[in-house]
Design a protein around this nucleic acid. Sequence first.
DNA 1: TGTTAGCACTCAATCGGTTGGAGTGCTAAT
DNA 2: ATTAGCACTCCAACCGATTGAGTGCTAACA
Lengths: 351, 351
Amino acid sequence: MELDDRKILILNAIIETYFETGEPVGSRTISKFPGVTFSSATIRNEMQDLEEMGYIIQPHTSAGRIPSDKGYRFYVDNMLEAKDSEITDMKGLLLEKTEKLEAILKQVVTLLAKTTQYPSVVSSPAVATNRVKFVQLSNVNESQILCVVVMGGNLVKNRIIDVIEPLSNENLLKMNMLLNTNLNGLTVSDINLELIERMRRSAGEHEGIVEQVLKTVADTITEDEEFEVYTSGATNIFKYPELSDNKESASEIIETLSDREELREFIKETQNDEELKKNGIRVMIGAETPLETMKDCSVVTATYELSDGVKGSIAIIGPKRMDYRKVVETMSRIKNGLDKALKKGSSSKEE
Amino acid sequence: MELDDRKILILNAIIETYFETGEPVGSRTISKFPGVTFSSATIRNEMQDLEEMGYIIQPHTSAGRIPSDKGYRFYVDNMLEAKDSEITDMKGLLLEKTEKLEAILKQVVTLLAKTTQYPSVVSSPAVATNRVKFVQLSNVNESQILCVVVMGGNLVKNRIIDVIEPLSNENLLKMNMLLNTNLNGLTVSDINLELIERMRRSAGEHEGIVEQVLKTVADTITEDEEFEVYTSGATNIFKYPELSDNKESASEIIETLSDREELREFIKETQNDEELKKNGIRVMIGAETPLETMKDCSVVTATYELSDGVKGSIAIIGPKRMDYRKVVETMSRIKNGLDKALKKGSSSKEE
DNA sequence: TGTTAGCACTCAATCGGTTGGAGTGCTAAT
DNA sequence: ATTAGCACTCCAACCGATTGAGTGCTAACA
């Protein structure tokens, strides 16, 4: 059987009504929907067909219908672009100044959560493909050396090295030269033991210290390779009874949203997706979600880009009956704002 | 009326039983308590007295009794030290290496939450009284200068300054000298406009740039003046029905626990407390808590110290029927570990 | 005089039965 | 093909009875 226009109209009515109420939708309710001219009995017949075809579900006999994952999927794929989106102005997104990446992302995730009223997640770019821009060692005092690394996107990493014997200023200068000449423009994955060994040899004397320092520099660059994640608005799930009535699952969702490790996994899994690559935005419904915890949720993800093709992720998590239109719009607006702000920010390297 | 030994025994029995069950405690239950030789009728009479005196509460007629805030307070003040605490070894707390403060604190807060099974909060020291240890400017490229500041406790701050015209290496060197000479050892609150103006004058030429850089350095030092807070284990509240059965309040608590601003307020308010200053640990019960959100919780706070008297806070939040003994023990152990680790870490300055 | 056994009383929680209403599926008429 | 009408189903809410934990009081006792 095929979905004719009337079935689509009814399916649409069911889904949109369910978005508002969160309750199963009955045939009488649909019959009052604008654009519906036929009676509730006809609707009931059609609903039986829709249920057979798997687009809607009846929680129990004599209850109304709710959309199935397949129904949501159809809605997102076919019905979403129908209405033309009135582009509301993205006020309050002021990413003007070249700020530190961290600050920007924190701002973005808060903004996203406030705007959509759903829990939001933003990740910094995966540093594995990010490039070293600048390295600097400095003597803090006789026993401590400060090591600072600036990466693409003005991501700054630092570490303090405890050394046994002090390093003279000339040697420090030499080391800095050496480091910048050898490491500049490399990605995290380019840095390996072989390279370090080569640098150590070309540094010559001061074996012990040089080795320790070099190792720490390499370590500093490769640390946090796994990118950072920021979240905001986790408690928004309490606005949706279907996610928070069950204490068990509510706790699990919040737990997941505050577990950086898990979120990283999650972002990694979503990042390599063809649909995402094509449109820049991807909607996942229920079981399509990579995390077991979120089987009753929908997730919308997008990626943003630094100038050098390094990608970070934005995601919002919500109930299946989320306002997909608004979310996708907000998301794409933020994605664009972010793309622009960051390209500008880190472009100084390329120019 | 005074609390005689028998009343204290009964009060203790009520409180400890309530800790386990979370349910009102009846006279028959108490009569089976080890050490109780008298009958339930006697206990009932005593309980009437205890209720009149305000130590226990009857939620409704024909229900058992639960401790009041006053009862908890009495318990914490008078009954806690009675038993000698078997000192369990604080395994897993490896603060050996001089790591970055941030990493240590994140580790500590996770450990605390895992050990106690209560939501935990740890704050970095208030930087307002923290001292500048080292300042360093470096040229990243023609248009960007990296500014790094190391504070006491090896807290590292950094910022990237966008400049219009490049700053020559000699001038950069001069600036670094100037900065370190003038700022070293100062606290955040020591840094004011007057000082900056004096430095600008002694720098001489390059008016525009110098001013911009100086301002940014000052800004970098004073940023995050409000200290940072880390949390872990917020979802532990779901283990205690009295805190999580009501969705409203559960949401509020978790909200508070992820709202850095609010937590900062909270920590500030708890930090200047005489009892805390005396013992290093303070227990707040119900309404004694500074935050409205936590009126049904108890909070245990402690402060740890850097070598220079700079203080940070540790706190755990839980139900009133929390295992005070265990919490206070764990807390004091972590506090000591932290004190030791951090004093060692930042002592290099004093030595 | 302090303690205790016994008893009547209270009240929240729970259980089973009833009811109401929303909603369906089917059938017969249009 | 559509629709009105009706019997049927099932959940949710309501209600009253019952249960049981727990109290307060009184009278008896050591």
